[in-house]
């Protein structure tokens, strides 16, 4: 096989290597699958009206569609990223009615009537959101893949501190939470950064929290 004959996109390559990694980790054992799991079921479509960044979209969706897939594949809002698709990395974080959630672990059909905000709705290249400007200023990323999720998460997180919601590291449950680095790290633990830009991310968020941005 000649390497020059193989033309794979980066995406296909990533998918392939993920699949082979899984197979290597766990060899298949015959008879482990439930008999019913293989039975085919017809897809079910349903109309869904989604309000994203202030715009209403009337869509016809497979009930299985995650909010993340609809944002990226149907509405072409590619800012929200898919890292793990299992609620483990935070790359897909968006704001729903002002609260941060993982868009990969929710069905689009469950969000009729909700106000959804993605990174594209938070700021624009001409008018950056203060968190976006602070991430640029502090170099709060390297590859940038986790960044939209980090920024949406930080926006939701600062609102949670503002609302007085305590965290695991708050010494006093009943006092107003502090804006310390320890609080920010704990509250942002649902957002992983493969490039390890954490120190600068904390600095960027601290700037905005303290009103320096």
């Amino acid at each position: 096989m000649q390497a020059s004959n193989i033309k794979l996109s980066r995406r296909e390559l990533l998918v392939m290597s993920a699949a082979s990694a899984t197979m290597m980790a766990m060899p298949a054992v015959a008879g482990a699958q439930p008999a019913s799991a293989g039975r085919a079921r017809a897809p079910v479509n349903t109309p869904v009206a989604l309000r994203v960044n202030g715009h209403l979209h009337e869509l016809e969706l497979d009930t299985r569609s995650s909010l993340l897939d609809v944002l990226r594949e149907r509405l072409q809002l590619g800012g929200t990223k898919k890292g793990c698709d299992h609620g483990q990395c935070g790359a897909c974080t968006v704001l729903v009615n002002g609260r941060r959630i993982n868009a990969c672990l929710t069905l689009a059909v469950m969000h009729q009537g909700d106000e959804i905000t993605t990174i594209e709705g938070l700021g624009t290249p001409q008018r950056l959101h203060p968190l976006q400007a602070a991430f640029v200023r502090h170099d709060g990323y390297q590859c940038g893949y986790c960044t939209p999720g980090q920024i949406c998460s930080a926006a939701g997180m600062l609102a949670e501190i503002e609302a007085g919601i305590p965290s695991h590291v708050s010494a006093d449950l009943e006092a107003r939470p502090l804006l310390s680095a320890a609080e920010i790290r704990e509250r942002m633990s649902g957002n992983l950064c493969r490039c390890g830009a954490y120190a600068n991310i904390v600095d960027a968020i601290t700037d905005v929290a303290e009103g320096r941005a």
């Binding site: 609260r99 672990l105 998460s153 965290s167 695991h168 449950l173 649902g190």
Partner: peptide
Amino acid sequence: ARALLAGASGQLRNK
């Protein structure tokens, strides 16, 4: 309150 805050992430606890 402590047990809840020790679990999952901010995003997951919101849901």
